[in-house]
Design a protein around this nucleic acid. Sequence first.
DNA 1: AGGAGTTCTTAAGAGCTTCTTAAACGCCGC
DNA 2: GCGGCGTTTAAGAAGCTCTTAAGAACTCCT
Lengths: 224, 224
Amino acid sequence: MTTAERPSLLLVEDDAALGPLISELLEPDFAVHLAVNGSDGLHLALTRSWDAMVIDRGLPVMDGIALIKAVRAKGIATPILILTALGATDEKIRGLDAGANDYMSKPFDAMELAARLRALTRTYALPPQTLGIGDWELDAGARSMRSMYGLVVTLTAKEAGLLEILAGEPERVFTREDLINALFHPTDQPGVIDTYVHHLRRKISKTVIRTVHGLGYQIGEPHD
Amino acid sequence: MTTAERPSLLLVEDDAALGPLISELLEPDFAVHLAVNGSDGLHLALTRSWDAMVIDRGLPVMDGIALIKAVRAKGIATPILILTALGATDEKIRGLDAGANDYMSKPFDAMELAARLRALTRTYALPPQTLGIGDWELDAGARSMRSMYGLVVTLTAKEAGLLEILAGEPERVFTREDLINALFHPTDQPGVIDTYVHHLRRKISKTVIRTVHGLGYQIGEPHD
DNA sequence: AGGAGTTCTTAAGAGCTTCTTAAACGCCGC
DNA sequence: GCGGCGTTTAAGAAGCTCTTAAGAACTCCT
């Protein structure tokens, strides 16, 4: 599931009215693909990669439970929510034990279905701690910068540290003294900073770090 | 979650009657640990590893929603089911969007709770556990690597272990300390890692494992 | 425009990290 | 016990990073 893209969702629903309706309801949050019977659904489930599936319990040709079992038997771990018209507890249990991760009974609330699917597709990996800097993104952990379109530049410890401090408070002007106290021995001479600013400008872009004459350096929105 | 063992479950429930009851109901399927308030629950959630958590919505001291948010904020991806006395749809949505994977409203059916927890803790491991690494594929079970077009290289235990760890979290930079703690005795000297990295690069390819100077090693998309 | 002060750029050596090689050690099967 | 293999240690070589320094270029002020 790529960032900033809607998660892809396979919806298997044979009801000619309900299918398009659910599809439309979920479209804001998901890229929905509708399959109108179990065998189409199975084929799509096995041949493409999905972020989640919503499967109707009562399908012609191939039952929803059988479909889920077939998908799971192939080792596919994609989250599945099963839709059932039946509210009885053991029907729910049968669906869950067949390999569904969740179920909802018809009639259902559209907002809740969306919320449940968000819960199923959500991932909790801590996003690599990144800082946005102009067109670039700093990954302090890996000490690298990535521009849009994937160009990656690796930084040294001092370069990354300097950039991190500057980017941590955009618009603030840091004096050389500020930066030396934060990054170097206070006994070092102020010129060190200039050198690293130069290195960074060479690696990333001339315009990312702005010089404030007589004061120090700054990161922020371009002035022109 | 080890095979053939009951999954571990953290139950956070303040009701003196309900807590032990749920605990008893789930014991056949899960190794239940009961925390009777939110702060105990949070502490246990953060300090131990669980296969699933069941959290009451209405807790004294620390609310269930706040507890879930705190756990998710730490990057913990353990499945969570939230118990709520409130049946209103937006209450359910709030719980799910806070980071819960599922909810149940009281009063609830014990069998259904167990079924839902089984669904949450179930894993769908693919038969051959392979990891893609650049143009190669690691078969950790057979401790071998296959390149596209069939070239096969066998690895030693340490080599395969090291590669597996690195490939398990692409882009993450592992320090030598990280790797030693995972693979070797913590008393071993950090240089061991360098040697195995060298062996791997000789066997597979120079470019698969990237050195991050001063930090450690990393696998990930090539940087050019 | 001229001068003083500030910033940029380049280079090079010191110091530290990583790579590479080799050899010693220990375990297991023969 | 012996041989082979995997593991670990060690040490010099190679490479990268840090820091200093000094001249060039620029900015600001008079």
